[in-house]
Design a protein around this nucleic acid. Structure first.
Length: 550
DNA sequence: ATAGAAGGCTCTT
DNA sequence: GCCTTCTAT
């Protein structure tokens, strides 16, 4: 993925950073990278029973990270991939086939009882489907998190947003794992951000002016930098065999002038050591055009734009063939895609039965089982309680868990705390008011946003084991990802049924600040919860309830 | 002998 | 993405 070895090559210019550096600013998120990481935590479930509650752990993972940003006052802007680029289809096919193979092999191993090997293969088989993205989008909507589905590459969309001012919907930096962002000329990128908010920062401006470890990009501009990336190999165009980041760098360094690319490419072609495919030069120009002028969605005009305005000279080497950027889309379509209503691959409306998932569902039922195992004593804390009413299995059980109590100062990720509560008997497995957030017109989706597809026959029937949350006058309902407290508990239980102590990624520092923060914030949170609660109540009429007494 | 590319295995909680 | 092996100088 991305440019092989580019990050290692650029290491001297990449510095540690904490997300709080961007407090008060908008930061873009490459949704795919978090979806993919989150999917590791439930790869088996995603492969074997995509509709189970367990298969949705990737959403919890994602929302945790979103909440980490919010905790640090960073405004997240989530960007999803849209349609696939024609020139990338070879790469995509390849990956897809490997994944399908792993899936088949994984199922075989599972049947043979070799779980370890199966899990291994399922991890390799994990794919991010449009359906997964769509489900996450429903959560983002209820959580009022800004998002946009790119017409094509999310990377291009992110790079575009990074060129805008915040008041125009722009972002100050991008969080991703994909080095393609560098090739797109993104100005500020945070790689490898962990659950505490620590990451590695790449600032384009610094790179272009600093000299370090024998590397000097002072004679480079953005365009040359992108050219170097392409020479080193990218998803759109494999490099000439034998050329990697180092040689790409020296090739560009040696010919730093306007006509450089012609010189670079001809020296390459003349060099007997390398065999340059005949169409390489042509492909090179086209790839450069993609990185420079990819189609992106412009929220202001609600239509497609180019990442950078098209110039005459690019039109030349494209020979007018703009289709390599992906087909142009009518504004109405671009808008529907961007807003997550239209599947960018099939151009069909998302299945109307795709369930709208309440944030509350993020609570994995396994958490309930855990609570059971541990007995209510152990999971009691005085401060708060959450009452959970599960639809089927736990109607008589008397337990729950809640959020709160982030104490132990010595550990940097402290105990997620369980509090008490009890399961309410379930009275209304009622024809629950359906969640009708989306009103599509036609048919089944199952079609991925992009490549990496997986047959996910979407259930038309809600899972039976969803949690139901009831409301109570004196209770404040927490919506799972609305606050630290709310998400903590569910996630703090790992799949072995043990409180994992990872309730919230807190640094020593932020742990120290919590008490004050909490008292001052509690009131407004209560208000917010109440509002939200009432709204949810109306909307979902009794589906999913989750109490917290304060 | 050495630099740089290519290939293999890992990644989550 | 990192670590190891391969290959060309």
């Amino acid at each position: 993925m991305g440019i092989p070895n580019l990050l290692r090559f650029m290491k001297p210019f990449i510095e540690p950073v904490h997300i709080k550096k961007y407090a008060g600013q908008r930061v873009g998120i490459d949704a795919y990278s978090w979806l993919h990481k989150g999917a590791y935590s439930c790869s088996m479930e995603l492969c074997m029973s995509p509709k189970s509650a367990g298969a949705r752990r990737y959403i919890s993972y994602f929302m945790h990270h979103v909440n980490l940003l919010r905790h640090h006052k960073v405004v997240p802007v989530v960007v999803f991939d849209g349609g696939s680029m024609p020139c990338k289809s070879a790469t995509d096919e390849d990956r897809h086939k490997k994944r399908e193979l792993s899936l088949v092999l994984g199922k075989e191993k599972l049947e043979q009882g070799n779980t370890a090997a199966a899990i291994d293969l399922f991890r390799k088989a994990v794919q991010i489907t449009p359906s997964m993205a769509y489900q996450l989008i429903q959560i983002l909507k209820t959580e009022k998190v800004e998002f946009v589905v790119a017409p094509y590459e999310a990377d291009a969309q992110l790079a575009y947003l990074a060129t805008l001012d915040a008041d125009q919907g722009g972002i100050a930096a991008v969080i991703t794992e994909d080095s393609d962002l560098i090739a797109y000329g993104c100005t500020a990128i945070i790689f490898k951000m962990d659950r505490f908010g620590n990451g590695e920062e790449f600032i384009m401006e610094k790179i272009l002016e600093t000299v370090k470890d024998g590397l000097c990009f002072q004679d480079f501009d953005q365009n040359l930098f992108t050219g170097m990336c392409i020479l080193a190999g990218c998803d759109f165009l494999p490099s000439v065999p034998g050329i990697g980041t180092k040689r790409a760098y020296s090739l560009i360094s040696k010919h730093k002038n306007i006509d450089l690319y012609w010189q670079v490419l001809s020296t390459l072609k003349l060099d007997k050591r390398y065999s340059v495919p005949d169409d390489y030069i042509d492909s090179f120009w086209k790839t450069l055009a993609v990185f420079n002028h990819a189609r992106v969605y412009d929220v202001k005009s609600k239509s497609l734009k180019h990442l950078k305005p098209l110039e005459e000279r690019y039109l030349n080497y494209l020979a007018g063939d703009l289709d390599i950027l992906g087909p142009a889309l009518a504004p109405s379509m671009a808008k529907a895609i961007a807003e997550g209503r239209l599947n960018p691959v099939t151009m069909e409306t998302f299945d109307e039965f795709s369930r709208t998932i309440s944030p509350i569902e993020l609570i994995d039922t396994s958490a309930l089982n855990v609570a059971n195992q541990h007995g209510s004593q152990e999971i009691l804390t005085q401060e708060s309680s959450i009452t959970i009413c599960s639809s089927e299995e736990s109607r008589d059980d008397s337990i729950a868990f809640a959020a709160d109590e982030i104490t132990s100062g010595e550990q940097r990720c402290n105990k997620g705390v369980l509090a008490l509560g009890k399961f309410l008997p379930q009275k209304h497995s009622s024809p629950a008011v359906e969640c009708k957030e989306v009103k599509p017109k036609n048919t089944p989706d199952n079609n991925p946003f992009k490549k990496r597809k997986l047959p996910t026959d979407q259930g038309k029937v809600p899972d039976q084991n969803e949690l139901l949350i009831d409301l109570d006058e004196e209770a404040v309902v927490l919506c799972s990802s609305l606050s630290r407290e709310s998400v903590g508990p569910a996630e703090s239980l790992d799949r072995n049924g043990v409180s994992a102590g990872l309730c919230w990624p807190l640094t020593q520092e932020s742990v120290a600040s919590i008490p004050n923060e909490r008292s001052s914030k509690r009131q407004s949170q209560q208000e917010a919860f109440r509002n939200k609660t009432n709204k949810n109540k109306d909307e979902r009429s009794g589906l999913l309830k989750f109490f917290m007494r304060l």
